[in-house]
């Protein structure tokens, strides 16, 4: 039985094609202004890579901000539930999930069955989200991957005075003008990001094992600082790309809803 999950987020859109609980293929694209166009394109890409046609998809679940706008889905499920589901598949011992997406971040606690029992999302501004890192990487003239790696080489990380993305950007520019080593600035950016996330995680209550999903899970600088701040080790995900967690969760829901049993 072939099912699909499609996650249209604010920055990226993801799709996963699954056969009997195993991932056949996945795709990731930059989101477009219209969520249904993002959904169509990312699904097309995922289907082509899997060598599967849309007609063969028995059930498809949509998630993310564009979930209600997708034309081809059978059902929409929130990204909270999908990330919880996907995280448990990626890390079967996960009891807590920290997801940092493009424009929001979430902390959630799972029960033994992988259901979300408590969650919180950022609800004040975009700082502490992927967009924050994207803006800072652009100012520093490095890629997101380089930004993450720089923390390890920092000697004296700067402290960003403000949590506001716009003001933090001004701080970063001031540090660059003062010839502060770029690694120290990058580490300060990653630390600021981790601090914002730690507040959210502590509000929900930290519980082992902690799993991190979303694109920022690939930023080792943020993950290491977050580990220090929370006092727990965050298990690194090897099974699949953590950025795909929402789409994987959606595909797992599709599998269940199509009668494929619990995964």
């Amino acid at each position: 039985m072939i099912v699909a999950g499609c996650d249209v987020g604010s920055l990226t859109s993801k799709a996963v094609i699954m056969r009997d609980g195993r991932i056949l293929n996945s795709a990731l694209i930059k989101s477009k202004a219209k969520p249904w166009e993002s959904a169509d394109e990312v699904m097309k890409s995922a289907l082509e890579g899997a060598g599967v046609s849309m007609k063969e998809i028995v059930f498809c679940v949509g998630t993310g901000y564009g979930r209600d706008k997708m034309k081809f889905i059978n059902e929409a499920v929130t990204e909270i539930a999908c990330h919880g589901k996907g995280a448990r598949w990626l890390l079967p011992t996960a009891m807590m999930v920290i997801d940092i997406g493009g424009q929001d971040c979430k902390a959630m606690r799972l029960d033994r069955d992988g259901r979300v029992v408590k969650f919180m999302t950022n609800d004040k501004c975009a700082s502490g989200t992927g967009r924050f890192l994207e803006v800072m990487a652009r100012v520093l003239g490095v890629s997101l991957e380089e930004l993450g790696e720089m923390s390890a080489r920092a000697q004296a990380p700067i402290t960003l005075a403000s949590a506001c993305t716009v003001w933090a950007q001004a701080d970063v520019i001031a540090h660059l003008n003062n010839r502060v080593p770029i690694e120290d600035i990058a580490a300060g950016v990653n630390n600021a990001m981790a601090s914002r996330m730690a507040v959210l995680a502590n509000s929900v209550g930290v519980e082992r094992d902690v799993c991190m999903t979303g694109g920022v899970a690939k930023n080792d600088g943020v993950v290491s600082t977050l580990e220090k701040l929370l006092g727990v080790r965050i298990k690194r995900i090897r099974r699949y790309d953590p950025q795909m967690a929402g789409a994987i969760g959606a595909a797992l829901f599709a599998h269940e809803k199509a009668g494929g049993g619990l995964r």
């Binding site: 901000y65 929130t78 909270i80 259901r115 979300v116 969650f119 999302t121 609800d123």
Partner: peptide, 16 residues
């Protein structure tokens, strides 16, 4: 002005 985000959180609560 935050109806999308609010809706997502409420939907997640209803799923719970």
């Amino acid at each position: 002005v935050e109806s999308g985000r609010m809706r997502m959180r409420i939907d997640a609560f209803l799923e719970r």
